[in-house]
Each structure stands twice: as C-alpha cells, then as structure tokens.
Computed example of a mutant assay.
Amino acid sequence: MINYAIRLILVGLVVFQIPNILPEIFVDSITTAIIVALVMSILNTFVKPILTILSLPITILTLGLFYFVITVLIVYICDALISGFAVTGFIQPLIFSFILGIVNSLVGSFQK
C-alpha cells in the first residue's frame, strides 16, 4: 500500500509538471495532479479493459490504431471527472498518457 502511495505522489508530481511541456493540458494545483493520478489509475484498471474488449472488432479492423483513441478517451473521462484538470485536442492527451505510462513503468521498476 505504501508503494502505491509513493507511486501516486511521484506520478502526481509528473502530472503537475506536464503542462509546462504540453500547453493544451491544464492542472491547477499539486492536489489536483495527485487526484488525476489516482483517477487515471482507477480508470486504467477498470474502465480501459472494458472499452478495449468492447472495441475489439474496430481495433482489429484498424490494425490496433483504435487503441490510441481509447487511451485518449480515458484522459477525457478523467477531464470530465476532475474540475481542476482540462485537456484539449487529440495529440496532447495521447502524449500525456504515454508520459504517464513511462513514469509508471519507471517508478514500478524501482519499487520492486
């Protein structure tokens, strides 16, 4: 449990710094960034697998490219749920999601 809390805080810090790199993403405070990290974790655990299974035919037809749309959709769901977090466009949320994935992998590799 403490490892998960450390991961949330570190990912939250990265979420707080991402608007410096990606101008179409807005995070108003560090608390909001940690909440975004928590909500993204929950959405990626529970909602993303369901969306992936439901969209499997179109994902196969597009040779896997529709998976990027699902990834961006998860970021937009997080945007709708959290008031101090805002995203626009398609590429910026996609890059945001990739950055979070890389940070989660790095933090996870150091925790083991």
Rank of each mutant, 00 (worst) to 15 (best):
S41P: 05
N44F: 01
N44P: 08
N44A: 02
T45S: 14
F46K: 02
V47W: 10
V47N: 08
K48N: 07
K48L: 15
K48A: 12
K48I: 09
P49R: 01
I50D: 08
L51G: 00
T52C: 04
T52W: 05
T52G: 14
T52F: 09
T52M: 12
T52D: 11
L54K: 07
L54D: 09
L54E: 11
S55T: 03
S55Y: 07
L56Y: 12
L56V: 04
L56K: 11
P57A: 05
P57I: 07
P57W: 06
P57K: 04
I58W: 12
I58T: 06
I58M: 12
T59L: 08
T59I: 14
I60P: 06
L61K: 09
T62E: 07
T62H: 08
T62Q: 07
G64L: 01
G64I: 02
L65N: 05
L65W: 10
F66A: 04
F66G: 04
Y67C: 04
F68R: 02
F68N: 05
V72L: 09
V72R: 03
L73W: 10
L73C: 07
L73S: 08
I74M: 10
V75N: 03
Y76A: 05
I77H: 11
C78I: 05
C78L: 03
C78D: 12
C78M: 09
C78R: 00
D79V: 04
D79L: 06
A80N: 11
L81T: 01
L81N: 08
S83D: 15
S83E: 14
S83C: 06
G84V: 00
F85A: 03
A86R: 13
A86D: 14
A86N: 14
A86L: 12
A86V: 10
A86Y: 13
V87I: 14
V87R: 00
V87S: 01
V87Y: 01
T88H: 15
T88R: 15
G89R: 07
F90Q: 07
F90E: 02
F90H: 06
F90A: 02
I91C: 04
I91W: 13
I91T: 14
Q92I: 04
Q92W: 12
Q92A: 13
Q92V: 05
P93A: 02
P93E: 03
L94H: 10
L94E: 10
I95D: 08
I95G: 06
F96Q: 01
S97L: 01
S97W: 00
S97F: 01
F98V: 15
I99M: 03
I99S: 01
I99V: 15
I99C: 02
G101M: 04
G101Y: 05
G101I: 00
I102C: 11
I102A: 13
V103M: 06
N104S: 14
